[in-house]
């Protein structure tokens, strides 16, 4: 997946640069940089950096394919890379399985939650999200799931809507 993310970034970088070149003015009539100048500099650097990055990720992937060694799952790649650069071994937190499917399910539930905000209103959308999520990942405790699904949205709704007077989407029932 790493190389696909890198490829996606490269595609976005190319799109950003080409769209900017097509729609923005690069220099003014007097020869000064215009609205498109800075985006063009960023776009060019982004395309170059993303291309090099993709090349590196593909090489890494090919190496893993050739040798059959799956890289160890890193718990915090950014912090660990910084530690590596300073000669500190912070890899004791690594290892363990990956739960990509669960990430996808939770992400889809979040999308559903946001899509329902304007349809059901904040309170009901929160309730639906909680029930869906808890009955997927915490099936062993149905009663506590229901209580929790009622209590947390009610508390947050009260906090944001009543106490802080924040504007939250209203549903067909008026809340």
């Amino acid at each position: 997946m790493k190389q696909w993310f890198a490829a996606g970034l490269l595609a976005l970088a190319v799109g950003y640069t080409l769209y900017g070149l097509g729609t923005l003015t690069l220099v003014t009539a007097s020869g000064r940089p215009a609205a498109g100048f800075f985006p063009l500099v960023i776009g060019a650097l982004l395309v170059l950096a993303c291309a090099i990055n993709l090349w590196g990720d593909i090489r890494e992937w090919r190496h893993a394919q050739r040798t059959g060694i799956t890289p160890v799952h890193l718990a915090d790649p950014e912090a660990e890379a910084k530690a590596d650069a300073l000669g500190v071994d912070a890899h004791a937190i690594d290892g363990g399985p990956e739960f990509g499917r669960d990430v996808l399910v939770v992400f889809l539930y979040i999308c559903g939650f946001v899509a329902l905000l304007n349809v059901l209103g904040a309170l009901l959308a929160m309730l639906v999200f909680m029930l869906a999520y808890l009955f997927t990942f915490n099936r062993a405790h149905p009663v506590s799931n229901v209580i929790y699904s009622l209590a947390l949205p009610a508390f947050l709704y009260g906090l944001f809507k009543i106490l802080l007077n924040a504007s939250l989407p209203l549903g067909p029932l008026g809340f």
Binding site: F113, V114, L117, N118, A122, F129, Y133, Y148, L168
Partner: peptide, 29 residues
């Protein structure tokens, strides 16, 4: 597993509440 919904609800409702914008909530997602 019980902490996850607290974080999700706070993030989504918090992001919406700032400007009452559903576009910004999608940007958050």
């Amino acid at each position: 597993v019980n902490v996850v919904p607290v974080i999700v609800l706070l993030c989504v409702i918090g992001a919406f509440a700032i400007n009452a914008s559903i576009i910004e909530t999608w940007i958050l997602v």
